[in-house]
Design a protein around this nucleic acid. Structure first.
Lengths: 193, 193
DNA sequence: ATTAAAATTAGATGTATATCTAATTAGATA
DNA sequence: TATCTAATTAGATATACATCTAATTTTAAT
């Protein structure tokens, strides 16, 4: 059972407008303007919410002439209800649980001293990336750094700044242009595992 | 079935950290620092989340010496799961549904012309307040207005600005001090119905 | 080809909130 | 009383997102 799906479902349902839309659709399909009318909101707002509801598969659409009708996929709700029950009754394991944060913490504890310096650079790629992510978090996003500054920063963790700086680039944590460095957005970072 | 409760539950569950906390607690009670440790977060962050989980009654606490243990109240999850199922299978009505937005829209349509002016001031208190709320929304919060400015603003809706301005005050939509007016926060406004 | 209606996209704005550090409170023990 | 630990509060920061208006796209109808 992936954490992401569960969170996405509940986050989507955690909005009064969307609950109202679901309620309306549970009585039968409706087109966008009808929903907007019934809720006193504008069509773009409804589009926005229907997008989110579609992202979690809770609604699907059927076109008829000029008009798009939205249908409720009730199975999703039943499924998610059951999911939560299983989770708390230990019938399902929650993925990304041990991995994500607890494992990450274990690695950080194992390789970082109390003064913040690295004991060593992990050889295992997975662990190495966790350490790198930790290090990169100390840099401001959107800020342009000189190579000297990056070196100085890395030295706070390890003497071999050259190797680590290079790894920052190859693993996409940072972007370099003309000797100027900048942190990449997290979605560009090397994937752990 | 009140909309608010449903939304609050899902909004609270729509966060990965909180799902993880629920998962941990489903295996047995834990104290704050233990949770923080297992998730690799700081105690204040855990406090924050536990507060939210307590708000929806999903956890309760028991003190033991210096330490506070958190327990999961599983009934809430089962209850909310059933609630959603009932809603979509038409076995329960969703309150605040017809009232809230659709009714509000009906009233606004009934009393406001296409040019934005009021046809008349509703005599019925409930409807009148809906109109007033609508009008007040056009004012900036946190801005101090002269009485003249308020009068001018109200004239966009109706000629009898004196009456309406007075109602704004008595119904707590605005606050007046030394002839200076300011919009009150919504929770102070007169309650509709 | 034009027009009309429904839907979507883009962009702006304001509000909510997840997380952190630092400071404070509360209870327990010495 | 002094001190230790756990918990909380306060305040800051950064991000997410609900809603709107205006502009664009899509499909149908004339």
């Amino acid at each position: 059972m992936q954490l992401n799906r569960i969170v996405a479902f509940h986050k989507t349902m955690g909005d009064p407008t969307r609950i109202r839309i679901v309620y309306l659709l549970s009585k039968g399909p409706l087109h966008g303007q009808a929903i907007a009318g019934k809720l006193g909101l504008t069509p773009p707002t409804i589009t926005h919410h229907l997008h989110k509801l579609r992202d979690i598969n809770l609604v699907y659409t059927r076109r008829e002439k000029n008009t798009v009708y939205y249908y409720l996929n009730e199975k999703i709700i039943l499924h998610q209800a059951v999911t939560l029950e299983k989770i708390i009754s230990q019938k399902e394991e929650l993925e990304e649980m041990e991995q994500d944060n607890a494992y990450r913490k274990k690695v950080l504890d194992a390789f970082i001293q109390t003064d913040g310096k690295l004991k060593s650079i992990p050889a295992q790629r997975k662990k190495k990336l966790i350490i790198f992510e930790h290090m990169v978090k100390g840099l401001k996003k959107g800020v342009k750094y000189e190579e000297k500054e990056i070196n100085e920063y890395i030295k706070n963790f390890h003497d071999d700044f050259a190797t680590i700086r290079r790894e920052f680039i190859t693993n996409q944590y940072m972007y370099r242009e003309n000797g100027i460095y900048e942190v990449n957005p997290p979605e560009m970072w090397a994937k752990i595992e």
